[in-house]
Structures are given as structure tokens and as C-alpha cells.
Amino acid sequence: MLVPWTQYLNSNHFYLLDYVFDSSSTQAEDINRLHVYFLFAAAFILFVVIGCTVLVLLKFRHRQGVDYQPKSLSQKWEILTIGVPMLLVIVFFVLTLKTMHRVLPEVNGRKPDVVITGHQFWWEANYPAQKVITANEIHLPAGRTILLKLLSADVIHDWWVPDFGNKMDLVSGKENYLWLNIKKPGVYHGACSEFCGAQHAGMQLTVIAEGEDDYEKWLTSHASLPAVITDTIAQIGEKLFTEKTCGNCHNISGTSNRGRDGPDLTHLASRKTLLTGLIENNKDNLGKWILKPQEIKPGAKMPDFKMDKQSADEIVAYLSSLK
């Protein structure tokens, strides 16, 4: 299967752990600093344990015929082995408190910039101030601190873009918040990290971080309606879209299709990928998806309409004109 979004990714993921230690947000910077401290402490402890084990094994092996006198270790060591770990615990607890409050400070009534809702198995992004709704490819501004509000429409999902640091669950019946200050524009990859059903693996996540100008441009273009359809085939497709009840699940602004159970399709053609990044957004793939959704993404919450090829082509013509 095609995995197109890798083409759009930052190509700086070169070293093994760049995904996590790349710190593309200030939150990730804080977390990763603490993580590196921890890795040093852990490596030190592991080194001590392995070292002691090897030394003991070299020194105290059983030798045939040699009678030995068991020696025992002074109880003083016991105090040392409690003292050092306790000290480490205290240090790391203080660091934990500090980092935790920096990464996730109180919301204090601030309005969220974007509301993200997790659905089985896709993401909805709602920009309340601009009245923009989109799906799966989430545009966010770089260079300033924003607040995301996280909700779930069904089961528990989890927001995780490794480059940005922390996860946060999207819990049904609960409002969660996440602060984010993305350092530089780029395309970042993430995935739902709480098992959420058949297509948990197919619930990838793409964040497109943009400079302030590009971001504003994107918002205005998405706040307006798509251009009027002039192509005749696309016009047939528009009718079919409503007739085939696609509108029960999908919203297309400016039409009678108001569904909310599937991704918003108002500006579908402006997205680079489909199905949270599983396949590239082109006519060919759109047609395949509409004809055989359960083959492309088995378990996805869109039924097979047993549609004929021609109707599918007409709908595709319509959908791919929704810029």
C-alpha cells in the first residue's frame, strides 16, 4: 500500500532516536531534557549492576575440591543501597514537578485555539474562532503557544506526535487540554496511541505547522465555501452524493449534507492524503475507497455502498473539485 505522507515529512529524521529527541516543540524540549538526565542515571545504575554481577561471578566461582569459608558482606552496604536510590528519587521527583507544570500548566479559562475530536478512526479539527472544520490533516500555527482541547466522539483515543513530546488521551465524556508551541513550520507525523478498535493502526495523524501568514491564509480559504461546480459530471456527482446518503455522515458546507459521523469533506481536494494518511489523495484512490472502503481500510466506519463504477467516478469528479 502507498504511504504517501512520508514524502512530505521533514527529512531530518536521520539518527535512530531523532523522532523523539528532535524536540520540535518547546514542550518536547522540556521533556527530552529530563529524559536525557534520566537516561544517564539509568545507564549508571545498569552499569553498576552489571559490573557487580560480573565481578562477583569472576571472584566467587565454585572450585572443585576447594573448601571455602562463606564470607558475608557488611550490613553497611545496605544503607548505601537505600541512600543512593532515595537521593535519586528525590532529585527526579523535583525535576518531574517542575517539568510537569511547565508542559501542562493550568488552563485558567483560556479558550482553546483548536478543538480536536477523536473518532473511530479519524481526527476532526475544529477552529471555533474562525468556524472552520477540517479532518485528519491538522493545520497549526508555528512559533506561538496554542491550546488544544481534546474530545472523543466514541471510545478513548490518544493524541501523540512524537516530535511534540507529550501524549494526551481523548476520553469520551471528558475534556482534556494540551499546550503546544511548535518551533518551526513543517509536516509532523503522529498516531493514535490508545487502542481504539479494528483500525487503531489506521488512525495516523498529520500536523501541518505553518508560519503565521500561511496559517491565516489557510484559515481564510477554509472558512469560505468551495467554488461553484461547473463541470457537468461533477454536478451529477454532487446529486449522487446526497442521493446515496453520503451526507448522513459527511458535511459539505453550503450544501444540505450536514453529517458529522465522518470527516468533513468541504475542502477535501485541498488535502494531500486520505484516511489519516493511509493513501494519497488522488482520483484513483478516491474511486477505490468509495467502491471498496472495507478493502482499503478494513473495519473503518464507512459501509460498502455496492456502487457501480460510473457513479463512483461521478462522485469522485465532484469530491476532487472541492478545493
Binding site: C52, F60, Y68, W77, E78, T81
Partner: peptide, 28 residues
């Protein structure tokens, strides 16, 4: 977080009790 870090201490120190048991023994 604090309680979870704490529980690591008595668990971790046992490692040293076992190392201390081997120390000075005749290991087969």
C-alpha cells in the same frame, strides 16, 4: 508519580541483596 518512584526503591534494592548473597559464596 511519587508513590511509583518510591516503590521502585525496595524493589531495586533487592537486586543488591541477591548480589550480596553471591558475594563471598561458592557459586555453582
Amino acid at each position: 508519580g511519587a508513590s511509583s518512584m518510591l516503590i521502585g526503591v525496595p524493589t531495586g534494592i533487592k537486586i543488591f541483596n541477591w548480589l550480596g548473597t553471591m558475594y563471598g559464596g561458592s557459586i555453582r
